[in-house]
């Protein structure tokens, strides 16, 4: 049962990836693209967690944490650049 549950979860996350990529390609504004990227990061975290359950391994956790950190920093930097024209004063 757990195997099919992880399969469904992986399928749903894959579909979510495709939808985010659609928005990333379509835009129309830079803010939309950053939002799509941010959602992609969170999807990647979810993907790694489900893989961790599926492979019964804790090695995926570190990668998930790193992606969560990087995603936040990237989103903040990009959004600030759009709003203020620089990343740090």
């Amino acid at each position: 049962m757990l195997a099919s549950a992880t399969n469904i979860a992986l399928g749903a996350i894959g579909l979510a990836f495709v939808l985010c990529l659609l928005r990333l390609a379509r835009g129309p504004s830079a803010a939309d693209r950053i939002l799509a990227l941010d959602t992609l990061y969170i999807n990647a975290v979810a993907l790694l967690i489900v893989l961790g359950i599926r492979m019964a391994s804790t090695f995926y956790f570190e990668a998930a944490l790193l992606i969560a950190l990087m995603g936040f920093v990237a989103t903040v930097a990009l959004a600030r650049y759009l709003a203020h024209g620089n990343v740090m004063d």
Partner: peptide
């Protein structure tokens, strides 16, 4: 896992 994938999908659909 099912609840989680549902909400992930809803987020992406909304986006």
């Amino acid at each position: 896992l099912m609840v989680g994938s549902f909400f992930m999908l809803v987020g992406a659909i909304g986006l």
